[in-house]
Structure formats: C-alpha cells, structure tokens
Design a protein around this nucleic acid. Structure first.
Lengths: 325, 325
DNA sequence: CTGAAAGCGCTAACAT
DNA sequence: ATGTTAGCGCTTTCAG
C-alpha cells in the first residue's frame, strides 16, 4: 500500500478504482493514527489552501456585518472551505501582509480596499476575488492575471430601490432621502442615495429632497423634518434604520403622526426596528442568499467552470412591512 | 548568489554577515520582480504559518466582540502576525475542519469550544492556545503535547467584582444581581454571577438577591424591580448594559428614582449606555489591554520563552462612572 | 490497480 | 562569506 493509494482514498479521487478492502484498511489506519493531512503541504502542492478569506476594514461591527459573517462561515463550510475574516487597518499595515500568511482559495472583499490594494489582490494570484464593495472596479489591465473577479451588489442598489418603490406603491409622490455624510460609510451612502434617486426618477416622481446629516441623532434631522411639512413631503427614505429611528423621534417632537403625516422607511431591519414607535417599516438584507450566491460563484470558479452563476435579479433585499410606512 | 543568501537577507537572519552590496542587489531584485515568498512553502518548512486564528461561535456579534476583534487584529499586526477570525457553527461542522485549512501559529479561543474540541486543539500541535473562555480547563493529560495553553480571564470576574465594589463604595449593602438564563450566554453569565457573589461575600455584604431573567426586556425585570422596594434592595448589578437599561426602564415605570431609590450598574459600556436615562454607570472592558497581553503571550511562546508575561492584576476592566450609581 | 519518484518553494545545516 | 543540498508532506504523473 503506497502513499499514492492513501492519497486517492483520502481525497476520494474520482476515476480511481480502489478495492473496497484496501479502502477500508486505509480509512481504519487513518482513524487509528488520528491522521490528518498537513494543510501547509497540501497548499504548497495544490497552489492554494482551503481557506476563504473575508476582508473587512476595522471599525464598528454591527448586526448586519455580523449576520453576513455568520452566513458566509456557514455557507463555505458546506463545500469544504473554511471562511475566516481579516480586519485590516487601512494606513496602519498594507493588506498585502495577509498574503504572506496564507494563500487563500478566494478572497471576499466586504469593505474598504482602495484601488491600489485591489490591483495587488488581482496580481496576487488568488483564484477568485469577490467584491461587495459598491465602488469596486476590476483593474482592466489585469484581466489575464489568473484571478477571477466577481462583483456583487449588496445592501445598496436593490435595497434602496425597494424603499422608494414601497413609498410609491403606497401613494407617495413627494419624498425625501436622508443620507449620511460620515466618511466611514461614504461608499455605501452614495450607492444607496444614487439608487434611491434613480428609482424615484424611474417611477416618474419629482426629484426627491436630499438631506445630508452628520450623524443619526434626532437633533441632526430635526430641522429637515420641520421643513418637510411646508414642502409637502409625505414620505422619507433613510440611509439606514438608525437614521430612520432618529426621524421617527424628530417627527414625534414636531407633532407629526407616522405614517399619516409622514411615512418613514428604513434599511437593515435591525432588531431595534421592530420595537420602534411605531414599528419601523424597513428593508431587510438577505445575508444567507448572498452567502449562497457567493459560495456558488467561488465553487464554480474553483471547479474551473467558465461562467459563474447568475446573480438573482431580485437582489438580496426584501421589504419588511410594519407600521411606519 | 544562491537561494540561501537570498533567504538570509529577506528574513534578516541574525548572525549572518551579508555584505551590504549583495544585500542591496537582492532587495532590488526582489522589488523589481515583485517577489513575495510563498506562505505555503514557508509554513511547510517552518511547521507553522504566520496566521493567528480567533475562534468564535456563530451568533450575534455586538460592539464588545467587535472591539475585541479590532484590537486583536491591530495588535497582532504589529509583530508580523496576521489575525483572522473563524466563526464556527457548533453541531454543524467540527472546528477541527479548520486545521485542515491552515496551520496557525496560535489559536485564540474567544468562545464556544466544548471539552472534546479543546482536547483536539491541544493535540493539533498548534504552538499556542489562548483561551478567554471562563470555563476552559486545559486538558491535564495533554501537557506534553507541545501546545502551550494560556488562559485569560476576560469580561467576567474582574468586571463583575468592579460592579459590586462600586456599589459597596457608594454605601449600598443590600444588593441584587440580575443574570440571564439564555443558554447562548450561559458560561459568561455564570462567571459573572459567581464573581459578583464572591465579591459581595468578601465585602461582608448579606447574600445578594439573585434574579434570573430570560431576556433583556423591561417586562422581564419588572416584577423583580417591584419586589426590591419591599426587600430593601438599594443597588443592582446586572449581567450587562442591556439588562441594566431594562432595569432603568422598569424602575421608571415603578416610580423609582435612579440612583436615589435604586442604584444600577451595568457592564460592557455600550455606546447606548451614555445616552440612557439617566446615563448608565457601568464597567468598560479593555479590549486593547487584553489584546496586548494576548499578543505578548503569543510572541513569548513563539520565541521559545519559558514563561509568559504576568496577567495584569487589575484585570481588563475599568469603572465608568456616570449617573445611575 | 498499485508502487516509485518528481517536485511544489522554502530554510537551515553543512560544505566550500 | 557564499553556495549546495536535504528535506518539510503532499499530489500526481508514470511505470509496472
């Protein structure tokens, strides 16, 4: 019985007919010796490890990101890959440091890589690179780099469009869009704002009021809420649930009834949205569906499939209808 | 110029005198060819990679865990190691799956490994295993396994003791401890409760009222809050800030003034604690200090140091004094 | 169907 | 001071 035989049975190599008896002997021995193959040697030989690396910039991690990470971990586990997240500190150390620690099978960029880092990544030889970053553009000169780039729209266009469509469906014509100026969330905020404006345009609405606020406190939105009465704005789409709850609070202070005088729709479906006053209508994100799509794409590329699965046309968001809109 | 020479200059191998000129030639060539060493080959040769793996069970990730992850990432980066977190689904797949994807330099257990998994880990040959899990006991039979085990107390004993000590210092003698029965947080809740009871005992207090609640809603604590008036309880220590805020809310409903009628102290120092009514006195956790300690311990073990640094006697928590106690 | 053997890229011991 | 070389543990042709 040789190493090769062992390798075959342990890896279930197809088209290799190993007699059942040998097979069992191998398995039994492996079991008895608590044998487990060396990841390092396998990676060296195979050119890649079984690790899928998520990259995220350091910063507050909330329930939305948490759900995403959970979903990815669970999903990749189902096809023999291990998902791990690396939080990188932009400016402090280059992300490329990560590639001297591991040779991942795929990298999933969740946020915060700049153009140069993207290019490095494409050059790094990682088989698949999935980006959720709204502003990510694959480096055109690096097409033949061997890295397959997959971009997925998540938590911006489809979600913001749903917000607007719901207000339109419930009869609102003059709407406001509240966005955040915090540079930490700039990319996402811009993506959502753009999508909301586009959806409004497509629905034939007059150009929405765009309100930029610095944070999600009720004070920050109070002034805007008061002007809306005069402007005839009856529905408002917010950057996220936290901003929506600030609007709810400001509306109450201004003596407006929600949703009769002002309909408010958030985004993220945070746990707190359910217990808001009134319960917040919002758009929830489908972390599992996204993880599934990403998982299938990665598996397809690693298997050498020429084309990756189609992105679901519905996006990865759904309306959560409660009382506020 | 041979591979060895190159290896020496690239790794800054000590006690190898390489002429400056050769050195520069190597560096220049590496630069020009965008050379970067293969992690797989290095891990194979060195017996370990430069990756430190955090293990966490899947589940809601809040700001406390987020801060911990951020601190760890930043800290390990400073000594050439890369930190990544793996979220594992207990029951779904064995954690040991991870060791077929990577050979980490160290594993940091943040939560949720059972006894068998602990033992597997000690057997896996990972150089260092750091555990923050309050219930973690190194497997005694596996002492010679080559895995160095370091246990750190975080977010339980020292923190809960601080809560009690603050109430004692502000003159309270009859106190209540509110703990959570949610099985997801059992270990942590038990650790905190034990420590609080012990601290009360040491301070010579009568045995505290122990209140077990199922969740952190105001309803869940309302009944207990009402009985406290009759029992003469003047101070309450809670499992965390969320429970504390529920107590605050229930106290208000019961017509109690905080802190005059009832002093409340939380744990975690969530962002929301600052804007609670009244601002919540609480115990903050020192994620950076912990990360620093863990980082130093790991570095010491990897460097072959016989003894790891002393754990700071103050623990990794500090009092955040606001208005509620 | 199974055994032998060639490397994957790197480091450290050894020889020059 | 620099070059040569033996493996680390695995997968995969290639012969038998």
């Amino acid at each position: 019985m040789s190493r090769a035989t062992v390798s075959y049975v342990l890896n279930d190599t197809p088209h290799q007919k190993i007699p059942q008896q040998t097979r069992e002997r191998v398995l039994e021995a492996a079991q008895r010796l608590a044998y487990s193959p060396s990841p390092a040697a396998r990676s060296l030989r195979n050119g890649r490890s079984d690790l899928v690396l998520g990259v995220l910039k350091v910063g507050p991690i909330g329930s939305v990101v948490g759900a995403l990470l959970n979903a990815m971990s669970t999903r990749f586990g189902t096809d023999g890959l291990t998902f791990a997240v690396h939080l990188h500190s932009p400016g402090l150390r280059p992300v490329s440091d990560v590639w001297k620690a591991v040779t991942p099978a795929a990298v999933v960029v969740l946020s915060g890589l700049d153009a140069a880092e993207q290019a490095d990544l494409q050059r790094s030889g990682t088989p698949v690179l999935v980006s959720l970053s709204p502003a990510f553009t694959p480096h055109p000169l690096l097409d033949g780099s061997g890295t397959r780039v997959v971009c997925v729209e998540y938590a911006s266009r489809a979600a913001a469009a749903l917000q607007v469509e719901h207000l339109v469906a419930t009869g609102h014509r003059r709407i406001a869009v509240v966005t955040l100026t915090d540079p930490q969330v700039r990319q996402l905020a811009e993506g959502r704002l753009d999508a909301a404006l586009e959806a409004a345009h497509e629905a034939g609405l007059p150009a929405p009021h765009v309100v930029e606020v610095a944070d999600d406190s009720p004070q920050a939105v109070a002034a805007a809420v008061r002007t809306w009465q005069a402007e005839g704005v009856t529905g408002v789409v917010t950057y996220n649930d936290e901003v929506a709850m600030a609007v709810l609070s400001a509306a109450r202070d201004a003596g407006l009834r929600v949703p009769e005088d002002l309909a408010v729709i958030g985004l993220d479906d945070l746990p707190a949205a359910r217990s808001a006053q009134p319960p917040l209508t919002t758009v929830g994100l489908d972390a599992e569906a996204l993880a599934d799509f990403v998982g299938r794409s990665v598996a397809a590329v690693l298997a050498g499939d020429p084309d990756v699965p189609e992105e679901p046309t519905t996006g990865f968001a759904h309306l959560v209808r409660r009382a506020s809109a």
